[in-house]
Design a protein around this nucleic acid. Structure first.
Lengths: 344, 344
DNA sequence: TTGAAAGCGGTACCAT
DNA sequence: ATGGTACCGCTTTCAA
């Protein structure tokens, strides 16, 4: 076997390492400054058309791609908006909201990046995020404390926005109080004449963030109404639902708020198999207004949830970035309305 | 109203700008080099314990967070693994896979980042990604061409891995050929004695990536078997399903592969409402093996899909990064098995 | 054990 | 119209 030494192609220099603007300059026969002016279309400086062409040509030939880190290091800032990547499967509702947001932000010339923060606790995660020096940070859920906000701001984040149950000192807040979902459901059941209301509590601890406020909302709606609220723990498994259904009558409930439509479907199936009539014996209401609720029989009543538009949030972020240091805004953004169908 | 001029707290210098390692050095009374040694636990250099303490103290006091861009600029590489953020709501299957992957990669000391690439076409997106100089890029779906792979590699990416229907020149490939899902479903229906098979084609163009290969798989399974395959377009809406069901009998189908469990549920409901008996008149099979299939009546037969473990993919990435330049691996990773229930 | 200084890849000011 | 150059924050030789 003949050893053929690796020869660089004669036409272009041996491109083993990443081309830099200096390489482009060398090939084009100009200075690095000129390369920068041309590639960034710097308005304040006029570069002759032939030179521009040579620079562009050289950049293309070399496959030059600017180095974001170097650029933002020099500039002292970036246009990166950072969010933690969701750790729990996002429903269609949230996915759509997030896509909208992403689209709107890129329209405003921001770069959206989701940071995979598995195993990092709140303020510890904040340090990791801060290393990237994002211009803005969007944090869904709770878990980011005032400390974390402070770290981010001290690291140059011009806007920190939380989307969650409560305000955090120093951050803009999109308050998403899920108790309103429970209140809607509770009020509806009450209006339908139900008094002994169960509330399904998913056993997945990740969901407590939503399930607890929803439960609390039901409590609020039924408070002082000669009605009872009963927590009904349920794992998202057929067997668990069957067990629950078996003892259902002994719970003496005439209605149940099933956390969301998926748990509602799980429970309804088990109840039906047990001969519990819906809504006669037990009314069932879900939440999220998923397609599947319309397909169930009886059709599932549900709480339709309205998230803020991604467009609006994007504008809030942009405003906050421009007017950094302004007093943080707080918006109540969760809307909820009952969609009454046959199951209640 | 008395104007109170903003005074910096006297204890610490006015922290308007972001603290750097030089600030830490100044406060600790050491050089920047020493700060770097201490904070990175550099093994080759011994720093006295009192000095270490002073540095750590200063860093904490200032709220110092290292600048990732500066660090990786100097180092010449990063540990960032980049993926495009999904643009279509990810199901529980994919979400779990992705969480596993993320976790496994962070165990290997990589940082996982999802880049929001809305409105960017394949190779154009690749340039944007390349600006971040990730050490590895993971691209689900098609859309990245050999050009894009080349751009990424020239920009220093030591591994490019595609997860999709086909190999891409220069990149490692996790081949996910969804035709196997259709083949499974087709073979199953055939074995159940069905010969006139419909295949639901979602109208969402984002889903073509999966629906076309699945259709093709059904065709393969039924080829030369005196059976027919009929495409059945369907939008994910109740009304569309009702319309389809109305003309169902005239289609003369004795079985249908419904793309996935959600479309199956939509279709089954409409068929039932129209008095079409399942499985007697028409057998229905879905895919993805979602919980909801078990809750339908009749219980939904489905194609259970097996994705690679996130752990395995993480190891592939790590191997590829270490042995950059090695010949790209190709793995066939999609498993599919029929789960036979009552609907077929 | 610690410090001085070069340099990573760009940008922008100041000359020419 | 272009080039020279200082500098962004950090790591890492090399010297002291």
């Amino acid at each position: 076997m003949v050893q053929i030494p690796e020869q660089p192609a004669p036409s272009l220099p041996a491109q083993r390492s990443v081309p830099t603007s200096a390489d482009v300059a060398r090939v084009a026969g100009v200075s690095r400054a000129t390369v920068s002016y041309v590639l960034n279309n710097t308005g304040a400086v006029r570069i002759s058309e032939p030179t521009r062409r040579r620079v562009h040509q050289a950049a293309r030939d070399l496959g030059y791609v600017p180095h974001a880190a170097a650029r933002s290091l020099r500039a002292g800032h970036s246009r990166m908006v950072l969010m933690p990547a969701p750790t729990v499967p996002a429903g269609p509702l949230y996915s759509q909201f997030f896509n909208e947001l992403q689209w709107a932000l890129s329209r405003l010339d921001y770069t959206v990046v989701q940071y995979g923060s598995v195993g990092l606790q709140g303020d510890e995660a904040a340090r990791a995020w801060a290393e990237l020096r994002p211009v803005a940070v969007l944090v869904p859920g709770s878990g980011l404390g005032p400390q974390g906000v402070a770290v981010l701001k001290r690291s140059g984040a011009r806007a920190v926005v939380t989307l969650g149950p409560e305000r955090v000192e120093g951050a803009h807040a999109l308050l998403m109080d899920h108790s309103i979902v429970g209140r809607c459901a509770g009020a509806h059941l009450l209006a339908r004449g139900r008094r002994r209301v169960g509330v399904v509590m998913p056993e997945d601890p990740e969901l407590e963030l939503f399930s607890k406020p929803r439960l609390e909302g039901v409590r609020q709606a039924l408070h002082g109404q000669d009605a009872t609220v009963t927590e009904v723990p349920l794992a998202y498994e057929e067997e668990a639902a069957a067990q629950l259904a078996k003892g259902w009558r002994s719970l003496g409930l005439d209605a149940v708020f099933a956390y969301n439509d998926e748990y509602a479907m799980l429970l309804m199936r088990a109840l039906k198999d047990e001969g519990v009539r819906i809504p006669d014996d037990t009314a069932v209401i879900g939440a999220d207004d998923l397609m599947l609720g319309r397909l169930l029989r009886p059709r599932l009543s549900t709480v339709h949830i309205e998230l803020p538009s991604g467009q609006e949030l994007a504008e809030l972020v942009d405003r906050a970035v421009r007017a950094a240091g302004a007093v943080p805004e707080t918006h109540e953004v969760l809307g909820a309305t009952v969609v009454h169908r046959a199951s209640t």
